[in-house]
Design a binder for these strands. Structure first.
Length: 866
RNA sequence: GGGGAUGUGACGGAACAGGCAGACGUGCGGGUCUCAAAAACCCGUGAGAUAACCUCUCGUGUGGGUUCGAUUCCCACCAUCCCCACCA
């Protein structure tokens, strides 16, 4: 063992040993309790970033801890390898998306392995492997057979100049990202998954996730599902057999309705316009609204609409209400039609004011006044008391709502209804780099699945990606042209590929049985490992991925593949690593070294805008390259720093000096261990419990047990890894203090060695989750042959952790006045007596009447005086 | 517009269940070692009053409230951030 610690050499040596000995590879063991620790699969961008380090470091720490606690820990890793950026890069460079992706995986894997994360690499998967996406196709077909998928015409972002479909990102700001042509919505036949059938289950499941999932994510999912309870009410169209149904959450305001407003896409529009003179004008207007660009900012959107000439009858009071169309009514929500109640809804209010549609007041204010419509400046959306509401006038809004829903139901023109914001999930993409949809279209037999024995439908290679119109696969005749599995006649393959969220729906089930070529996974194996005990990833997946994957689990349950409803028991959304940015008005974003004194541009001398602390990005020149950092102080120091900078779920600011501090700490442990390990290894193993310990020895022993307790509890409950690291530092400082006391006493006794051994043999295993390489090296230097991965987590004794003497705060009227020291077993009465006898307390209670004495056991006494 | 989160020294953060605010680290100041520097080790470091140890006062965004006692609970406000959004 050397005097100084050299991380690079040590880290690579241990990484090799772990790989050679297959230290982290696991298999099912029914005799042992399992723990499934999962980080979100990595997108194959081509380069590791600091966010990966933070994500993996959290998971790895927990995996190490659970391993040492005796769990059979599954900690796998894989690649989210399909998707548009690889295709984009390939178009740009004229390369092949597959080559781009394979190269990215090779390079990133090398980078990730230098971080020394304790993965079972034998289970590695990449979603672009046919052996993996075969099962996406298998699931697709099973779902299609069960009616869980369907095809419908739905709008996609379309660039009319280049004739290609665009993703939402590519259509950002409403223009094509390449030629800046305004994007239009073009309807295409696309595949949808009936996730809305599971809306209620997805919502109810959230209740059970409470406690294990962050409140924030649960709220976002609730919001996303967006359940609204209300009523459907049917309005007859005047002089017609047609009727229009609207959804409302406020049926109690229906007497205030002054119009029915349809979305421009409403299917009944053409019908009600049939005999109207304004027919052509209204249809043209509707077309205009449909083409209208959906602006980024809702507030900036001007409301406009047009009267259709038709009327409906309000079923509650037989009033004739005009039918309008307007841009703010959405075809995709509710029934695509609303009743306009200006006095109770701000949007309706604005619309009616703009077009001078008269309306009526239907609610009282809080102080029970009735404001005339003319006086109103905004709508009153509150729940208060009804007025002008026929036989329901004077009721509370809630009661009127209930009674009027019942009335509508009884009279057959309405009923209670629930509406969701959640839409069916469009899984079609008109792109190349994804899982091919395994369907065949036959003129005679319609859409048919590819027979199972022909799976996977392999993505053809060497495809021209710069095609005009449709998907690149449309232009590959040898792929498209096939035969119908039913009639044997000529047929066409479906050329859509699947949304990459399909890949990430079930990858962690595949980890349980990654090489199975008969099934997506063996249900027995999944039954052993699943559900995931701890999932760790970014908040950006709070809704999409984390809803889709919950949905998929329920689908698999309904197929009989799994036996539980929720795939992830505990979720941790880690924060980002952020760093300050510098912006020069002349030279834009600057690297820190291009800035003098944090305020002047080194190139032009202009004043620099010290930007907000932001997510690291290449373009803002505030990114920190993990491999560069590993080259400076090693992976352990890097991991230690990102975990120490703050609690896992919060954003953490990068600090060069903080990173150095982490490296310094590791050297500090190394030095003190180096000083003691020879003594400890060569000393005979004495039973520490039989030794008579002196003051400094008892103190180190007590602190050791206290800190083991605190770190253990933290891992079990809060997972605030930053405070675990503080505790490790405290124990290290305690060993230094102990070492000084030993120096002072002049010689080293057997009991000194025994106490130091106990401290180091607690400290080193507890360091392993945060800095495994140095821990392994130290562990070995203390005479252990086995890897720490097979070591046992240190235990603590509450008895030994107990303070001998406790310091008790004494307050008078809640203000700190004194501190007293009492024996650890002092009871409440002892504390009371000691506190009242204290000189300072007597001074400040002198001549005043003691009303009460509050005693917090072993902590505090508060003397209340008048 | 709706939903949510956060606010503590110079800085990152700690205080677990309402009980000594500021653990741990960074930075800064001082010391030891050294010819010197770096490194290392040790000490100090919320603000103010006091010559000074003691001691006292103030202090967790602002203002109220509950309580013997509030960083912690409640109400209002201010600020910052995030998510969703003409969602009927």
């Amino acid at each position: 063992m050397k005097e100084k610690y050299f991380p690079q050499e040590t880290e690579q040596r241990w990484q090799k040993r772990w790989a050679d000995e297959r230290t982290f590879e696991v298999k099912e063991d029914p005799g042992r309790e399992k723990f499934y620790c999962l980080e979100m699969l990595a997108y194959t961008s081509g380069r590791a970033h600091i966010g990966h380090v933070s994500n993996f470091a959290i998971g790895c720490a927990l995996a190490w801890y659970k391993r040492m606690r005796g769990f059979n820990v599954l900690h796998p890793f894989g690649w989210d390898a399909f998707g548009q950026p690889a295709e984009t890069a390939a178009i740009k460079d004229g390369t092949d998306p597959e080559k781009f992706t394979r190269d990215a995986i090779a390079y990133m894997k090398w980078q990730f392995q230098r971080m020394g994360i304790s993965y079972d690499w034998s289970r590695e998967i990449a979603t672009c492997d046919p052996e993996y996406y075969k099962w996406n196709q298998w699931f697709f077909i099973r779902m299609w057979e069960r009616g869980m998928l369907y095809r419908k015409l739905a709008p996609v972002n379309w660039c009319p100049k280049e004739n290609i479909s665009l993703s939402n990102e590519q259509a950002h700001g409403g223009v094509c990202w390449r030629c800046e042509t305004p994007v239009i919505q073009k309807p295409l036949m696309q595949w949808f998954a009936r996730i809305t059938d599971y809306a209620d289950q997805l919502l109810e499941g959230l209740d059970r996730l409470e406690g294990g999932w962050p409140e924030r994510v649960i709220n976002m999912q609730r919001n996303w599902i967006g359940r609204s309870q209300g009523a459907d009410v049917t309005f007859q169209v005047a002089d017609s057999h047609e009727s229009i149904t609207v959804f409302t959450t406020r049926i109690d305001t229906i007497f205030g309705a002054n119009a029915i407003i349809l979305a421009p896409e409403h299917p009944l529009l053409a019908k009600i316009l049939e005999d109207k003179p304004q027919r052509d004008e209204v249809l043209a207007f509707a077309e205009k609204l449909k083409k209208e660009q959906r602006s980024e900012r809702v507030e900036e959107l001007e409301k406009h609409g047009i009267f259709t000439g038709a009327h409906t009858i309000n079923p509650f009071n037989d009033e004739r209400l005009p039918i309008w169309i307007a841009n703010f009514v959405l075809i995709e929500y509710g029934t695509g039609a609303i009743m306009s109640v200006p006095s109770g809804d701000q949007r309706d209010f604005e619309f009616s004011r703009k077009y001078n549609i008269p309306f009526r007041q239907i609610k009282l204010t809080d102080d029970r006044r009735e404001i005339s419509p003319e006086e109103m400046e905004t709508a009153d959306e509150s729940w208060s008391t009804t007025v002008n509401t026929g036989q329901w006038s004077g009721l509370s809004s809630e009661e009127a709502n209930r009674l009027m829903t019942e009335y509508a139901e009884a009279h057959g023109f309405g009923k209670g209804a629930i509406t969701y914001k959640l839409r069916d999930w469009g899984i079609s993409r008109q792109r190349y780099w994804g899982t091919p949809v395994p369907m065949i279209h036959c003129e005679r037999d319609g859409a048919l699945p590819v027979p199972d024995d022909q799976l996977p439908v392999v993505l053809p290679k060497g495809v021209n990606l710069k095609v005009e119109g449709g998907s690149p696969l449309d232009h590959v005749p040898e792929y498209v042209n096939t035969t119908c599995p039913k009639c044997g006649g000529p047929a066409r393959r479906d050329t859509d590929t699947m949304d990459t969220f399909v890949d990430s729906n079930w990858y962690y089930f595949r980890y349980c049985d990654p090489h199975n070529d008969q099934r997506p996974f063996d249900p027995e194996k999944a039954h052993y490992w699943m559900p995931v005990d701890q999932y760790i990833g970014g908040i950006e997946h709070a809704v999409m991925h984390l809803i889709y994957t919950r949905y998929w689990c329920k689908v698999m349950r309904d197929m009989g593949l799994v036996k539980f409803d929720e795939p992830v028991s505990r979720l941790l959304t880690q924060g980002m690593i952020i760093k300050e940015t510098y912006y020069c008005p002349e030279h834009e974003w600057l690297f820190p070294e291009q800035v003098i004194d944090q305020k002047t541009c080194a190139i032009c001398g202009k004043e620099v805008i010290t930007g907000r602390v932001e997510k690291m990005s290449k373009s803002k020149k505030n990114a920190v390259d993990p491999i560069e950092m590993i080259n400076i102080h090693g992976a352990d120091a890097l991991r230690l720093f990102v975990l120490f900078a703050g609690p896992p779920e919060k954003d953490k600011e990068w600090s060069d000096t903080g990173f150095e501090g982490a490296a310094r700490y590791l050297q500090r442990i190394w030095r003190i261990a180096y000083k003691w390990n020879e003594r400890i290894v060569s000393a005979s193993e004495l039973s520490i419990n039989q030794l008579d310990l002196s003051g400094h020895q008892r103190k180190l022993r007590r602190r050791t047990h206290q800190i083991v307790r605190s770190i253990t509890e933290n891992f079990e409950e809060r997972l605030h890894l930053n405070t675990c690291i503080s505790s490790l530092m405290e124990l290290t400082n305690e060993i230094y203090a102990f070492d000084q006391a030993v120096e002072k006493s002049g010689d080293i006794s057997d009991s000194d060695v025994a106490v130091a051994r106990e401290a180091f043999e607690a400290l080193i295993p507890m360091l392993a989750p945060f800095a495994p390489h140095i821990s392994e090296e130290l562990w070995q230097s203390f005479g252990h042959k086995e890897t720490l991965a097979r070591a046992t987590w240190p235990s603590f004794s509450p008895e030994l952790a107990r303070e001998e003497e406790i310091e008790v705060a004494v307050q008078v009227n809640g203000k700190l006045r004194s501190r007293i020291f009492v024996g650890a077993d002092a009871g409440d009465d002892d504390l009371r007596v000691a506190a009242l006898a204290d000189e300072k307390v007597r001074a400040s209670t002198d001549s005043r009447e003691i009303v009460r004495v509050v005693v917090v056991p072993k902590k505090l006494v508060n003397v209340v005086v008048r």
